[in-house]
């Protein structure tokens, strides 16, 4: 399936977005290769903005669902624009420090009136499993997206929210850490050294 077909199928309520995305990126031929490339870019962008490794991100099992969610809500074109911008920033800052890259990400992506809210929503998707309704001024400016309401992508997306991993805790109601585990200090996973102390 090519991206037009993919997008069309996503618009059919009966279809499960995550399985569709999986089928799309595993597809044969040029269309499959193309979509795989976009999905790879999506993950690369997600790694950059969540500070979780690709292994960690794929370890949630939610990559395809989030990929599909973004496309389903705001369409293909805007995601491609976002990812192309991201790729060009990465190409441009090859070998530069994180600080330089972050400055460009802020100026051209997060501070872009059209792409910024989408970029932030992708961050929020990974951390919470929730799609948050875009700011009203965004919809006024760039046209309302019919599916743009606040929703939890799935029960499992909730469970796999990286928010909980970040703080060494677990989502309420799932991934319990065992009787009495709460009496121990939390084990907060380490991550890249580019964090600045707030």
């Amino acid at each position: 399936m090519n991206k037009t077909e993919f997008y069309a199928k996503l618009s059919t309520p009966a279809n499960d977005p995550a399985s569709l995305a999986l089928a799309a990126i595993q597809g044969d031929g040029e269309a499959g290769t193309y979509l795989r490339g976009v999905y790879d870019q999506f993950l690369a962008f997600s790694v950059e903005v969540t500070a979780f490794s690709r292994f960690d991100l794929e370890g949630t099992g939610q990559g395809e669902a989030y990929f599909a969610t973004v496309i389903q809500v705001v369409g293909y074109e805007i995601l491609e624009q976002l990812l192309d911008t991201f790729t060009s920033i990465i190409n441009q800052t090859g070998g530069e420090s994180t600080l330089v890259r972050n400055d460009l990400l802020r100026r051209r992506l997060f501070g872009n009136e059209r792409l910024g809210p989408i970029a932030r929503n992708i961050v929020k998707l990974w951390f919470t499993g929730n799609w948050y309704q875009l700011p009203r001024n965004w919809s006024e400016k760039f046209g309302p997206a019919p599916k743009d309401v606040t929703f939890t992508v799935s029960a499992n997306a909730y469970v796999e929210g990286l928010l909980w991993t970040t703080i060494g805790a677990h989502p309420a109601g799932a991934k319990a850490q065992g009787y009495g585990s709460w009496a121990n200090p939390p084990r907060i996973p380490e991550f890249g050294s580019d964090a600045v102390v707030r």
């Binding site: 972050n102 100026r107 997060f110 501070g111 910024g116 932030r120």
Partner: peptide
């Protein structure tokens, strides 16, 4: 004023301002 608030958010996101 409403646009000004949005404008501030845009500029803040370009600067990484909290």
């Amino acid at each position: 004023a409403a646009y000004a608030r949005q404008f501030a958010k845009t500029v803040f996101s370009r600067m990484g301002v909290i």
